Amino acid sequence: MTVPDLMRCGVLLLVALACDSAVAEESRSDVTPLVISAALDEDVFTPLLDAFQAAYPLIEVDFREGSTLEVDNSVSADSPAPDVVISSAMPLQMARVNDGWARRIDSPQARMWPDWAKWRNEVFGFTFEPIVMAYRLDLARHMLPPQKHADLHRLLTSHADLLRGRVTTYTPQASAIGYALAQQDARYSTRFWELVAAMGQLDASLENDTRSMLEGIEEGRYWLGYNLIGSYAMAYAQHHPDVIVQVPMDYSLVMMRMAFVHRDAEHPEAAETFVNFLLSQDGQHVLAGQTPLFSPLTDMAGPWTAKRLRDQVGEHLYPIPLDATLLAFVDPARREVFMRQWQETFVLPEQTSEATP
């Protein structure tokens, strides 16, 4: 090949590379980013994220996992704001929406979503997750595992020596979901404070999240956990046979992950597309078939549905209402009163007296 031929080939190669670069740049410009701030374990949520990406390949998801308090803080503190906000801390989500941080969605999916699982078409509860107890398998060698709240209280009082320091639950002081669950328990159970006192007497460990409780049970540091998020516990138990999950048979609280589009979303169309997908038959089918988050839709088929849960537990499921009553739980005065009672009830009597001047 002559020099002129080589030069012509070089020119053609440069032109081809320039064209490829231009195509790639144009392709990148077609991709819309989508920032999701979520108090939701990404490992559990991955099947739905994957299904969304397959359906909408030109939307690039930036999933930012955080605690309930971190996600709540992101609503007003992050700049730019997240496009979609998802959290299990239902009172905090409702407070943000009530304060005007959410965009109303006017879509067929939003209009058709059950009224009991949405508010003003601005925030939507898209899961149906029971609150459960969990225990180590070898607990059964020492005592009959609890199936009801009364069983749990009886174990805490009759097997105090064995269970001291081996019980765990959420801390309502540092966990927004922990506080919400404690408030709801006090609402439904007349013996809630007796249970709190019994856990305090046994030096129960207070954790910030369900995963820490589950890991403690798996490692043997804890024998028994109370008020864990069922979706996480069930997913964890699938890979850790020493962990047994029990949905309480007398009553079980049910929480819903609440999602809304941020009013200052930089990518509102992508955000609405994502929320609509959560509410769609396709999205709920993935939720019910591939995640333990449970679909709230009564006509949805799959192993993880509200209907199947009711078939197993009966009518003793108490969904936390997604309505304006949630706002009472973020009232500072109410929180102060509740937390004072919690601390006085949970802390051991001798610790209380020592702390009193």
Rank of each mutant, 00 (worst) to 15 (best):
S76A: 08
V11E: 00
R187T: 08
M258A: 03
D106R: 08
D203A: 06
R136M: 15
P296G: 07
R154D: 08
P332T: 13
V330T: 15
L144D: 08
S205V: 15
W193V: 07
Q351I: 15
R263D: 11
A77K: 13
A54Q: 11
T190L: 15
Y188T: 13
F277H: 03
P91R: 04
W119F: 12
V35A: 13
V35Q: 15
A259V: 05
A259W: 00
V167T: 12
A102V: 03
I86H: 08
T127I: 00
D138Q: 02
L58R: 05
Y251S: 10
A150P: 00
Y188P: 01
G216M: 12
C19Y: 02
K148M: 07
T352P: 00
L163K: 03
L293E: 04
L327H: 05
A89K: 01
L348P: 06
V132F: 00
G125R: 08
V275I: 14
C19E: 02
T291H: 05
T210Q: 04
S295Q: 07
P357H: 10
T210D: 12
L228I: 12
L287D: 03
D62W: 05
L322A: 05
E215P: 00
E272G: 01
M255S: 09
R154M: 07
S27R: 10
A54D: 07
A233G: 07
G225V: 07
P303H: 09
V247I: 15
A259T: 03
L144C: 03
N227Q: 15
E207Y: 06
E65M: 09
P47R: 09
P4F: 04
I86P: 10
C9T: 13
Q281N: 07
V254W: 10
R164N: 10
E350S: 14
L253I: 14
I177K: 14
L297F: 00
S252V: 13
I59C: 04
D78S: 14
A306W: 00
M255N: 06
P146C: 04
E215H: 12
E42I: 09
S231A: 14
F338S: 03
D115A: 15
G216S: 09
T273C: 12
A174I: 14
T305F: 05
L155S: 10
G178W: 06
A81C: 12
R28W: 02
